[in-house]
């Protein structure tokens, strides 16, 4: 899967967050998140999801194609690289 990535600025301590623009919407992306703890929230005005695994957190709107990913501070570079390798390997 091809994607675009951009650093997401914020004001939290030790925060490493990036936004990824995917070629699919959040709903479809959720079906690919095997071994992640995925929660969907359908009562919000625009329903969204969160997914967590190994201190990595993904948030996104189910009908949108941009997701926000937060990596753990202590190993964010390697976790980010692994995540992006995994994203690239996904077939869409």
């Amino acid at each position: 899967m091809k994607f675009e990535v951009k650093k997401a600025e914020n004001c939290f301590t030790n925060s490493r967050s990036y936004e990824y623009m995917l070629p699919i919407d959040g709903q479809t992306f959720c079906t690919m998140l095997d071994n992640w703890v995925v929660k969907e929230y359908h009562k919000y005005r625009r329903p969204m999801f969160t997914a967590d695994k190994d201190d990595i957190n993904i948030k996104g709107i189910l009908k949108a194609s941009i997701v926000k990913v937060s990596f753990p501070e202590n190993c964010w570079e390697s976790e980010k690289a692994d995540f992006e390798r995994w994203l690239t390997s996904l077939m869409v």
């Binding site: 914020n10 004001c11 939290f12 301590t13 925060s15 967050s17 929230y41 919000y44 005005r45 625009r46 329903p47 969204m48 969160t50 948030k59 709107i61 949108a64 926000k68 937060s70």
Partner: peptide, 25 residues
Amino acid sequence: SAAEIGYILEESYDIICRTGLHCAP
């Protein structure tokens, strides 16, 4: 988390607010 609340407010409700330490750590 404050980050998640801010994300939901902005992305699900179009409400722009500020989250985090507000440059006043």
